[in-house]
Design a protein around this nucleic acid. Sequence first.
DNA 1: AGTCTTTGTCCTGAGACAGGAGAAAGTCCA
DNA 2: TGGACTTTCTCCTGTCTCAGGACAAAGACT
Lengths: 396, 396
Amino acid sequence: MRRMTARPANAHQARLLRLLRDGGPTSRAQLGDWMDLSRSRLAVEVDRLLDTGLVIADGLAASRGGRRSHNIRLAPTLRFLGVDIGATSVDVAVTNAELEVLGHVTQPMDVREGPVAVFEQVLAMAAKLRGSGVAEGFDGAGIGVPGPVRFPEGVPVAPPIMPGWDGFPVREALSQELGCPVMVDNDVNLMAMGEQQAGVARSAKDFLCVKIGTGIGCGIVVGGEVYRGTTGSAGDIGHIQAERDGRPCACGNRGCLEAYFGGAALARDAEAAAREGRSAELAARLEAAGSLAATDVAAAASAGDAAALDLIRDGGTRTGQVLASLVSFFNPGLVVIGGGVTGLGHNLLAAIRTQVYRQSLPLATGNLPIVLGELGAVAGVIGAARLISDHLFSPA
Amino acid sequence: MRRMTARPANAHQARLLRLLRDGGPTSRAQLGDWMDLSRSRLAVEVDRLLDTGLVIADGLAASRGGRRSHNIRLAPTLRFLGVDIGATSVDVAVTNAELEVLGHVTQPMDVREGPVAVFEQVLAMAAKLRGSGVAEGFDGAGIGVPGPVRFPEGVPVAPPIMPGWDGFPVREALSQELGCPVMVDNDVNLMAMGEQQAGVARSAKDFLCVKIGTGIGCGIVVGGEVYRGTTGSAGDIGHIQAERDGRPCACGNRGCLEAYFGGAALARDAEAAAREGRSAELAARLEAAGSLAATDVAAAASAGDAAALDLIRDGGTRTGQVLASLVSFFNPGLVVIGGGVTGLGHNLLAAIRTQVYRQSLPLATGNLPIVLGELGAVAGVIGAARLISDHLFSPA
DNA sequence: AGTCTTTGTCCTGAGACAGGAGAAAGTCCA
DNA sequence: TGGACTTTCTCCTGTCTCAGGACAAAGACT
């Protein structure tokens, strides 16, 4: 099947495509109101988009007291691929042009196996989704990787947890393989975009999105746009010092937040608690599985295990301390907590909130919601689809 | 004398005005190149600006191998007033349209006397400048206040060090008094704008500007624009926790950065060192003056006093610790250190640099200059003039 | 003196754009 | 059932915006 080749020819067309993406099928009149453009001018641009095939006019909407309107909508055959590469697993999903998830698969994986092995797996997963009938091909793909990215080129730079990826031309390689445009970004930024597109951050302009997975990162959104920093490492808060002369961290420093919290540290601490006899619940789970993960701590905590609860509270408190500084500095309108350990749920959230509300300036916390992300594992893939659609729905 | 009433009618004209402001007198041909606009289209907009009187064409430039060009420049009679209200002093300056300082006065003052008393003084200073012949009137004024501001309305909100100012309609009141448009912002943001306009940050897009005066604040510039946060308190880093369960702070919390450093804390610590006999140099100065200020510490340090050097190093280290977190988070392309205590100079800078380069991520610090501001006291007033000129040089 | 370069002006044709007239296709009420 | 009213969409017209080319002005260079 032929895939999307056309691109919007001007800013009006780009804006139309995004409005249709986020607002669904819409009449010409409605679009004119939204864009603050005369109906005559708008009609021209819509007609041009119809010519390109990027949008179609199908069916008539119900009358609202007058002539029935034509539904203008994005081409129903458009398909985006969203890929979220984590430290220990990978998510691949297919969306339509409205960024609704049509198919989604998750598999365990180890990033340290390097880009070649990982992308082989990703391509197999994409092929599987295509085989299941939700897509005949892809018009674009967004890729999230767990480390800093030189965004314009789509190349990871100096990623601590994925050494083999440094400088690998992810964007170019995948674009070749998939035969469609590809954009690459940090997984945390994609989570923020996902929650902004379809989650709790829909109406937020300036917000932070803290992802607590194997590591800890923070997506920064300024004026509705992801802020990536000068070298693409903005939001890398895992190695902010949480304790002076504290625990040694893999990065070479001491007392980093990630040395105390995040999936890896949490599992380590839980195993220690089990071995030292501080928790029968955790010890039993360690006995059964041979090792522990963040989910075990969550399960133990909801079973009332005191040691597990302590671990969560302590991690939340440390995260909250760091976050309190960032809230004072950045004065966001919303803070979203997400990532693998959100299974820890409200115990974690309560600890974070307590710390932030206590330590940050009243003016900054006065009306500051701190909430859990509502999309879970699909936040990343929706963000990835949004990334590539933002790219494709911008003037050529 | 009649003052500026015209405003640019469209984005082209606004851009032209800013180019002329930042680039000085320029030929039509040069402007066309800068704006990426055809000479014919540009000529139309320039002619319209000439009609409004906002710009003039005077004299001919030297030939560059062909016909000599006309110099297009901003109206030489335009005058902006820049006001920088600090905790203990106030700066007032007059600039021309190119934001060059034509006259500048500084006076001691106490913000706690409240807005009415302070503005009486400010208006007297402005009148004095006008009397000296550098201006016959003002086309606009920018005001910096030492606390958070609700920017669109130009009203201070919940300012900790200037309680009487909460909710006072600074913008409206001064606009009445001066008879010209007024914009109000946090003094730290104005310092950042000043260094961006005419100082070390001229080419920086994303940078931080740390102002260490009586208190400590941080201007945040994203993509060339000041970021103010959701409630206008972004950059308020003085009350970030520098030490767990540390010194009590005036804000009610413990261990805030401002409890350890900044002009107030530094003076307090210096007086303590003098009284406890840890520094003969500082004791002598205390004896002579009855109290100590940051400048005394600077003088003592440059005279080789060990206790003074310790104070500076300790303050720099703590500031550096906080800044290290913010650098990891924000990944700026430049960090500027300015404010009253920059007299502490390179001892302070060295301590800050050491800490940031040690604690932040290598990717974020790899090519990160940390430098002193180069404008000193005029940074704020130039920033204030820039603020109002940005406002006036934008489409009506 | 002749050629080249640069600047600035003028003109033309393509496209952007708003607003109005009016046709199409419905609702609503008597 | 028919007339009045609404809403949507198309078409037309006049005004701007804009690029690019032709050309004149004014000087540099040889």
